[in-house]
């Protein structure tokens, strides 16, 4: 459900953001971007274009070399440690490299995200079951994450990111290892979170199948520079250029 961009205050705002990895790798260059509450945004671009970097900047795993980043109205360059911690509890991130604990079970991996918010065991248990059912992983609940296939690990990472019903979900290449059926499950999870929970969702991907027919905004990174995606569906042209 795209919002009217002109009246809402953006949930995430980037103003002329540049990220240079030492010594001189320009990963993101002069990017300005507003992401509105309740929006689903697709971030595309070739490998090495800077998608992951942009996502890390938004959850403050990286700090920008230049420019301003605000999340929920808070300037990330002037935020306390406790502030970062609170923010991260409300942002769900599915990392491109999953970042799961291989020796712990699927249940434990997902539960961790909720335990840090001191959710009760009962609530955690119910939520994990729900997410596993949505992602068709129910029979893997007590398996160690390290014993799963890449595609299963990918969905566990997504489930963990979605566990707290985050107001912002950042999904980095969420369907890279998935077949069309599993991809469909993931898209449905996004839709579910977005509609039921009002979550804002940013999906970094180079899988055209998941954004080809979308009615949501698609942006493209090219060598660190951001632009609107060139090949837009008639639906998008109708929505964003009218």
């Amino acid at each position: 459900m795209p919002r009217d961009a002109s009246t809402d205050k953006p949930l995430v705002e980037l103003v002329n953001v540049t990220k240079i990895y030492p010594p001189d790798v320009v990963a993101v260059e002069d990017v300005s971007l507003r992401i509105y509450k309740g929006e689903i945004l697709f971030l595309t671009g070739m490998s090495g274009a800077g998608k992951t970097t942009l996502i890390k900047l938004i959850c403050r795993l990286e700090t920008p070399t230049r420019g301003l980043i605000e999340v929920a109205g808070r300037d990330l360059s002037h935020i306390s440690t406790a502030g970062v911690q609170r923010m991260r509890q409300k942002i769900g991130v599915a990392y491109q490299d999953f970042r799961l604990l291989d020796k712990q079970t699927v249940l434990q991996n997902i539960a961790m995200a909720m335990e840090v918010t001191y959710a009760s065991t009962k609530v955690i248990r119910a939520r994990v079951e729900e997410l596993l059912a949505l992602l068709n992983l129910s029979d893997k609940r007590d398996k160690r994450a390290g014993e799963l296939s890449r595609g299963e690990q990918q969905r566990v990472a997504l489930a963990r990111a979605a566990a707290n019903g985050p107001s912002l979900l950042l999904a980095d290449e969420p369907t890279g290892n998935l077949d069309p059926a599993a991809t469909e499950l993931v898209i449905n999870l996004f839709r579910h979170l977005n509609e039921k929970n009002g979550s804002t969702i940013v999906v970094a991907t180079h899988d055209p199948s998941i954004y080809a027919e979308t009615e949501h905004r698609v942006m493209t990174l090219n060598n660190g520079q951001l632009s609107a995606h060139p090949n837009r569906s008639p639906r998008q042209i109708e929505l964003f250029e009218a």
Binding site: L61, Q85, R88, K90, I91, L101, M112, V116
Partner: peptide
């Protein structure tokens, strides 16, 4: 270490 790193990503507080 690995667990603490992920806790950090998940926004665990210092007290936690």
């Amino acid at each position: 270490q690995g667990e603490l790193e992920i806790l950090r990503l998940l926004g665990a507080t210092s007290a936690y």
